[in-house]
Design a protein around this nucleic acid. Structure first.
Length: 216
DNA sequence: ACATTAAGTGATT
DNA sequence: AATCACTTAATGT
């Protein structure tokens, strides 16, 4: 499916338009590529990280988890992006407050934390990249807060489906009602009922393990 | 054919 | 909107 590319090419393709050449050279030198599979947990609550992850291909979902192991989806990280929470967790050597799970087979680039400070001083594009990342995460987080506070669950569910479809580039969503309920921190029965309503309204079509959106 | 898992439903809070 | 208790449907072995 994919042509075989060198690490060099992969990094240039994914980040070349964002970062300056000298920095890219350093990244190629110290960065480690890692492929992750669908549903692989990349970072768990309580974990500590010594590496900063950047998503090159694919997408990652970031969620919060309570003591009972119940989750709540916070935001997604797409190609070319990194996670501000993880950065913070890295430099301060504290344990993670969040959980990161891959939503599809993805390719990640890990960069040792030690480089952070040096690069912050040395490269303007790195500073901008990190600041931009913070900004994007915060914006998305606020969007999620708005959804939880102001939207009804059926609206939130529809938004979830549309977001999911946009992110994965397909109107077919391969998730069980149970999984959706977990991400939205609701219960399976409730989600099943709301999905049924959406189907009656013609917005979606329900199959086993699969939901098909009529449109985005 | 049987077991397992996903999804649907009525009643109750 | 959540939970319980149960049914029905789809799928794997």
């Amino acid at each position: 499916m994919h042509e075989i590319k060198s690490k060099n090419q992969i990094i240039y393709d994914a980040l070349g338009y964002l970062l300056e050449d000298a920095l890219l050279e350093e990244i190629i030198h110290v960065g480690q590529l890692r492929e992750v599979q669908l549903d692989e947990v990349i970072l768990n609550v309580g974990d500590t990280m010594q590496m900063i992850p950047i998503v090159l291909r694919g997408s990652i979902k970031v969620s919060r988890e309570n003591d009972a192991g119940e989750e709540l989806l916070l935001y997604y990280i797409e190609g070319g992006d990194t996670c501000a929470m993880t950065l913070q967790c890295c430099v301060r050597h504290t344990s993670s407050e969040i959980k990161a799970t891959s939503m599809e087979d993805s390719l990640l680039l890990f960069i040792p934390v030690e480089m952070m400070e040096n690069w912050m001083h040395k490269y303007k594009t790195w500073r901008e990249y990190i600041l931009q990342s913070y900004h994007t995460r915060l914006t998305e987080l606020m969007e999620t807060v708005d959804a939880i506070a102001f939207m009804r669950l059926d609206e939130r569910l529809m938004k979830f489906l549309v977001d999911q479809a946009k992110l994965l580039g397909s109107l077919e969503i391969n998730l069980t009602h149970q999984k959706i309920a977990e991400d939205l921190h609701s219960s399976r029965v409730v989600i099943s009922r709301l999905l049924k309503q959406l189907e009656v309204k013609g917005k979606i079509k329900l199959l086993r393990n699969k939901i098909i959106l009529a449109s985005i």
